[in-house]
């Protein structure tokens, strides 16, 4: 689950079939993989909240959606998550890159990097962190995500640290 190819294969094997998002360099390999695949569709979104809406519509029409975004998009998405997904119980798997982790990043990422986890927690949105090199942790995170999506029917966020799904990007 620690390469874009293996992660995308795994998501498809778990019946996720509708992918959208707003790009992040940390997810560039994963987006390329999804764009190139013949077995699923990836729809570029212009804003993260629009991607939340797209996933909500796709879910209600019978698909299993995945939303890719940088954590900077969490701010744009919070009203969508809280006044759409969390009240209608519309699940979506969110793969969110964690810019600004540990306070080491470009200035625009530092504050959101610090508050991404507290924001998710205070919004009632469960999440798990995916670390480079920790295959076992990634498996546990995905298992928790699948359980939340299928049983609680709310969004689950995989918060992805730098160095996992950015193959080909320098």
């Amino acid at each position: 689950m620690l390469t874009s190819q293996s992660f995308a294969d795994r998501l498809v094997a778990e019946k996720f079939n509708f992918f959208t998002g707003v790009p992040c360099s940390l997810l560039s390999g994963l987006i390329s993989n999804l764009e190139d695949r013949d077995d699923v569709s990836y729809y570029p979104a212009v804003r993260e909240d629009a991607a939340v809406g797209l996933c909500a519509g796709a879910y209600m029409a019978g698909q299993s959606p995945v939303l890719l975004m940088q954590n900077s998009g969490l701010g744009y998405s919070l009203n969508a998550f809280t006044s759409l997904n969390l009240i209608y119980n519309l699940p979506v798997l969110v793969v969110m890159s964690w810019r600004g982790f540990g306070g080491k990043d470009a200035p625009e990422h530092i504050i959101m990097g610090d508050i991404s986890e507290p924001l998710l927690e205070t919004s009632g949105m469960p999440h798990a962190v995916v670390d480079p090199g920790d295959a076992e942790g990634a498996e546990k995170a995905l298992a928790l995500a699948l359980d939340t999506i299928r049983n609680k029917k709310i969004p689950f966020t995989l918060l992805v640290k730098k160095g996992l799904y950015n193959e080909g990007h320098q």
Binding site: G53, G57, A61, G62, A80, S83, L84
Partner: peptide
């Protein structure tokens, strides 16, 4: 009828997602 009671601005993206997911159904 999907009554979107919150999430202002997202009627269009919800409708697009549904239309893409079920291309045989007029949405």
């Amino acid at each position: 009828n999907f009554y979107m009671i919150g999430s202002m601005g997202l009627a269009s993206s919800i409708g697009l997602g549904a239309a893409l997911a079920q291309p045989e159904r007029r949405t």
